[in-house]
């Protein structure tokens, strides 16, 4: 389990029906690539987040497959269409089986 994994997400609080909004997410994670060596020359085992999914009311917005070439603290910026008020669910899947989730509410006026 990676230490201090904290997701940070920016979603507007309100939107018009059908509006396209911008979402920014960042999660603190060391994303150890499995290519680096420690002081004794041993390879540091790979430990990354391998999948990120964003849903809105159960429908997929984006589903990303991550490889070791994604930087430390994976950052994603993308857009979503908001048909009605609801909840965005953000899920990150770690190599070690951990799953990190966070949600954001949005109100359609």
């Amino acid at each position: 389990m990676a230490d201090n994994v904290t997701p940070r997400i920016r979603v507007p609080r309100e939107a018009a029906a059908g509006e396209v909004i911008e979402i920014k997410t960042l999660i603190s994670h060391q994303m150890e690539s499995g290519q680096r060596r420690d002081g004794d020359g041993n390879i540091i085992p790979r430990s990354i987040i391998n999948r990120f999914v964003c849903d809105f009311n159960g429908e997929t917005v984006i589903d990303v497959t991550l490889e070791p070439a994604i930087s430390t603290n994976p950052y994603f910026e993308f857009t979503a269409t908001v048909p009605e008020s609801g909840t965005f669910t953000f899920t990150w899947y770690d190599d070690d089986g951990s799953v990190y989730t966070d949600t954001k509410e949005i109100t359609v006026s």
């Binding site: 690539s33 917005v61 497959t65 070791p68 070439a69 994604i70 950052y75 993308f78 979503a80």
Partner: peptide, 21 residues
């Protein structure tokens, strides 16, 4: 390989940004 973005029905535009090594 760096990554694959799959866009769902609610993706606003088929675009995304990230940071890579």
């Amino acid at each position: 390989a760096v990554g694959i973005f799959h866009f769902g029905p609610l993706a606003g535009a088929q675009s995304a940004s990230t940071r890579i090594r």
